[in-house]
Nucleic acid binder design. Sequence first.
DNA 1: CTGTGTGCAAACTCTTTGCATAAGT
DNA 2: ACTTATGCAAAGAGTTTGCACACAG
Lengths: 143, 143
Amino acid sequence: MDLEGHKQPVPVEKRVRDAGLRPTRQRIALAELLFAKGNRHLSAEELHEEALAAGVPVSLATVYNSLHQFTEAGLLRILAVEGAKTYFDTNTSDHHHFFIEGENRVFDIADAPVRVVDLPAPPEGMEIVNVDIVVRLRPKRVP
Amino acid sequence: MDLEGHKQPVPVEKRVRDAGLRPTRQRIALAELLFAKGNRHLSAEELHEEALAAGVPVSLATVYNSLHQFTEAGLLRILAVEGAKTYFDTNTSDHHHFFIEGENRVFDIADAPVRVVDLPAPPEGMEIVNVDIVVRLRPKRVP
DNA sequence: CTGTGTGCAAACTCTTTGCATAAGT
DNA sequence: ACTTATGCAAAGAGTTTGCACACAG
């Protein structure tokens, strides 16, 4: 039976299929978690936990596979923050991030027209993929 | 005996001492490699190899320790690039980077007045540590 | 001398891989 | 049916840790 009464405006299955990927249960479930809730950034492990919590039995390896496949297909972007974990961002347009030191938390710089000016030309033979701005934050020490 | 005839304008030993660290052989050697050649960004492993090549027997663990100690002391900055490795940057002032996808190579955006405008205020209780701009590059595909 | 730093190897975390089984078309 | 994806567990890369020995003050 189908527990989903309403379909999203952008059918997830189609997105997956259009990316050249078979719309398997796991990929659809992961895509739904990723794209249904607006823009998000999560690590593989976070998505894995969400999937399990949502009752979708999926292995961590498959989560990694899917995230990379989605990234290659242009549905996700890898977020460049320092630290061990790789974050994936469902917002592939140009926008930027706050990063909280020590907590490894990331969130969008929203409603802010951050712009970079005077960006130099890329070196010969190279093209710019995108520009990532990470504003590193630290809890203000109370004196 | 002392094989170094000339001292750097900024004595490395003093820098290390001023950072509150004992100027041990290893720390001085590493600091020399890091700071004598202008601005650099390297991973722990790269610095380790350089040290060995320079005839300084130092363990990888000590390289990691030293890099983190230098970072805490404000002599280095961690570079936010995606990928497994952590890069350390000897230039702690505001400046930005090109990152080459696929190669995991990083280099400075030099001679370019890159500026960020309309940067929003940080959230309550947070202060900005720094702003990292990473321009991701990709080899231009020749059609 | 006393205490901090170093080296080694083992532990740890995150990520990838190989291969048998399961699912999609 | 035939092909591609998944799951598991093991391997891999990078980094951290614990403890005995060595060196700096």
